[in-house]
Simulated scan of single mutants.
Amino acid sequence: MIIDLTDTSSSKIGATLVQARRRAGSPTTGAVLTLIISTEERHHYDAMKAASRASREHPARIIVVVGRPEVARTRLDAEVRVGDETGPGEVIVLRLYGELSAHADSVVVPLLLPDVPVVTWWPDAGPDVPSNDPLGRFAARRITDAAEYHKPMDKLRARAAGYSPGDTDLAWTRLTPWRSMLAAALDQFPRKITGASVSGEEGNPSARILAVWLRQRLNVPVSRTADEGPGITGVELHTPDGPIALTRPDGELATLCVPGQPDRPVALKRRETAELIAEELRRLDPDDVYAKLLQDVDVPFTEPLKVAGPTVEKAAKEAAKLGEPKPVSTTDSTAGTDVKSADGSPAPRESA
């Protein structure tokens, strides 16, 4: 059910939502959180679709905020969606025109569900300091994606300077399967690690962060090699017996190579945005590991670590706890390199 409201108000939207639920036979909602999506018109449909899929695991009221400051006349239009493709939750699409786009919080706050957490997600470049954004101030978690900016390292540096507990980034979330697989390899085949290397698409922030994480957790030199991708294409952990290698050249199937063992294919498909958002919604407490990562993300590889890393065995056991992403440290020579398309404009970023 989709109900369009033109030149409306927050109170009218709330009343319409209650009527729509009753008409659909659901007078109450089982939502466990409110998910606010702050985006541009061109991104709003894909973001809404991804959030609706994630809400099947985490029932939520989804509020999509699309600002149109270039329009002279101040006006609020809305779409109320209940049932069908929206999943078990509800979707409210708000289009804020004119000066109203600078006061999105005044429109959104009356539509928040009472006594449930609020999560704000920016699917595009997003603000440098999410906690200072009008829609980020009252959120328990704030989700950004540095890969959507043409200079992702610039975004990470800005967010490191303005970090607040509750901030996180999908460039970090994309690394969970890689960290899990590498931790499992070290757990099954413990070796003394003397160095590591990460290869991946030039300018990909997840490849950069993975290299930093490995260096801090293993306390060994880590190199970063740029290639055509897609995303991260391989990781090697150097040992006296030979490299432990996890390679994924096609973005679908990876191969795990361990000295003295036959090569093994492993599933390591690049995940869609809905899966990433669903993972982030599983934990609404501050990500302390991401915070520590930001502290060290811009330290050159030539400088020593701020804190000595743990043993390989301890790092493997800690990293295997998938719900608790682990910290990283420092930068590489390819960090922040811009990728441009044939016409000279920034090329779109891919996930890890």
Rank of each mutant, 00 (worst) to 15 (best):
A207L: 03
W213Y: 00
L112S: 06
R42C: 00
A50E: 06
V312C: 09
T334D: 14
T176D: 06
S199C: 07
D338F: 06
S333T: 14
T86N: 12
V266C: 08
R349A: 15
G25T: 09
S329R: 13
P127L: 07
A352D: 10
F189P: 00
H150C: 05
L112E: 07
R271N: 02
S9W: 07
V80D: 05
V32S: 13
K340Q: 10
M1A: 14
L294C: 09
G195P: 04
F301K: 04
H43S: 15
P110M: 02
D7P: 00
A319G: 00
V235K: 03
P249M: 04
R68Q: 15
A320M: 12
A51T: 10
D227H: 09
R141H: 03
V212Y: 05
D154W: 01
R248E: 03
V32W: 00
C257N: 12
E201N: 05
A51Y: 05
V258S: 06
D338M: 14
G126M: 10
P110S: 06
D343A: 12
A51L: 12
T225Q: 15
A24L: 13
S26E: 15
S52K: 08
S180E: 14
I36L: 15
L170F: 08
P177H: 12
T8R: 05
K326Q: 15
D263Q: 14
S180W: 03
H103Q: 13
T39V: 10
L305D: 02
S9F: 08
A315Q: 03
K151D: 14
R56S: 08
G336W: 12
P221V: 10
V80L: 10
A185P: 05
R174F: 02
T330A: 11
P286M: 10
D287K: 05
L5W: 02
R217F: 01
E202Q: 15
V297R: 01
R42P: 00
L76S: 00
P88A: 02
A102D: 07
L246Q: 07
H43W: 08
L253Q: 15
Q295S: 02
P114D: 08
V220C: 12
L111A: 00
L96S: 01
P27I: 09
A47L: 07
V312P: 01
R42A: 14
V129Y: 02
T334F: 12
D343S: 14
I209H: 03
